[in-house]
């Protein structure tokens, strides 16, 4: 046998997962300790051990903990979906919104906010507080279904066809959102605007418990697609020659990503940047191997959203900043910094 080959991957790429896991733990600690109410770390710990009293316990266990969990799961889901779809479309700049899920959810949210009053008047048993997330989730999935159906002929879904159909569906959804905005009154308009900026303020235990399985299931299943997705970056025909069931993988990747993004948007509103740039950041350091990019994106996405929400809760205390502003405000410059460092 000839001499051994050097390792094919990037030096140190494998260290990224433990490093990101540490960052996630740091962000979790940060989001449990930081907040508008001053709770010293020892009392945070006591509250977590079940020995907290009164307001400390409520703040740590009922407010910060579910928010941290919801934020982490949402950020991870968005980033994992972004990593998957970027690989699937062979485009490092693909956004989860490309398959229509965000605009479908936005349309459903606008319908609920603007016309929800009429709806609950007709059907009084509807719970308004739950109507918006459920509608947003359903709207996202319906829009993705439409995109997929348009791009599928004879059982073959075309990736470029999906991108084009996604653009069309996004345009239609945004036109209808525009119509609803036109119909809306001042308060509905404000509500919708805040929804599009994203917030974790609604994350209590019941909502977190409802959203968590929907966020976690795709996240646990998508890493299994990492190898076939790697092959598909060579091209769909090439992946097929390597024994990959291309159509099945494509369908699974789109459905699971849509589930993840739909659940994330339903839980928190629109949070930009995470799905687009987190996978990109991971790739800059670890290379494009989806076996690292998908779990790495989950860890970094969770960290970014948790950290951003900790800041959203404290920077303008006692008021809150929309967390979507902060993900972009933190992630954007950081991304630029990485890009310039790499360019050198």
């Amino acid at each position: 046998m000839s001499q051994a080959l050097p390792a094919a991957g990037r030096a140190g790429a494998r260290r990224i997962l433990p490093a990101l896991a540490l960052v996630l733990v740091a962000m979790l600690v940060l989001s449990l300790v930081l907040g508008a109410v001053a709770v010293p770390p020892d009392r945070v710990l006591a509250a977590l051990m079940g020995q907290g009293t009164g307001r400390d316990a409520v703040v740590v266990l009922q407010l910060r903990l579910p928010r941290a969990i919801m934020g982490g799961a949402t950020g991870a889901a968005l980033a994992v979906a972004g990593a998957t779809l970027q690989g699937l479309f062979r485009n490092p700049l693909a956004d989860p919104g490309l398959i229509g899920v965000s605009s479908g959810a936005a349309l459903a949210a606008a319908v609920t906010i603007v016309l929800g009053g009429h709806l609950t008047a007709l059907l009084p048993w509807l719970q308004t507080a739950w109507l918006l997330p459920v509608a947003a989730f359903a709207g996202g999935l319906v829009a993705t279904r439409v995109v997929g159906a348009v791009a599928t002929r004879d059982g073959v879904t075309s990736a470029p066809g999906m991108l084009l159909a996604g653009i069309a569906v996004n345009a239609i959804a945004m036109a209808l959102v525009g119509l609803l905005v036109w119909m809306s009154d001042d308060r509905q308009l404000r509500d919708f605007t805040f929804w599009t900026l994203g917030s974790l303020a609604g994350a209590d235990w019941p909502r977190t418990a409802l959203a968590l399985p929907l966020l976690l299931v795709p996240m646990l299943l998508l890493p299994r697609l990492a190898l076939p997705l790697n092959a598909m970056m060579l091209g769909e025909r090439e992946a097929g020659h390597l024994g990959v069931a291309v159509q099945r993988i494509k369908r699974q990747a789109v459905v699971l990503s849509a589930l993840a993004v739909g659940a994330a948007v339903a839980a928190t509103g629109l949070i930009g940047f995470v799905g687009l740039v987190v996978p990109h950041l991971v790739r800059l350091v670890a290379g494009p191997d989806q076996r690292l990019v998908i779990p790495g994106s989950a860890l970094l996405g969770a960290s970014l959203l948790m950290g951003a929400d900790a800041l959203a809760r404290t920077l303008a205390a006692p008021a809150e900043l929309p967390v979507g502003l902060l993900t972009s405000a933190i992630g954007g410059p950081f991304f630029l910094w990485l890009l310039t460092r790499r360019a050198r």
């Binding site: 508008a36 350091v285 970094l300």
Partner: peptide, 23 residues
């Protein structure tokens, strides 16, 4: 590692936020 340095900066920024003054 670059990533950890960046996030450490972020941690520092968070710790130094005016939140303490507002509580």
């Amino acid at each position: 590692m670059r990533l950890t340095t960046g996030l450490a900066l972020l941690l520092w920024a968070a710790a130094a936020s005016p939140a303490a003054a507002a509580t």
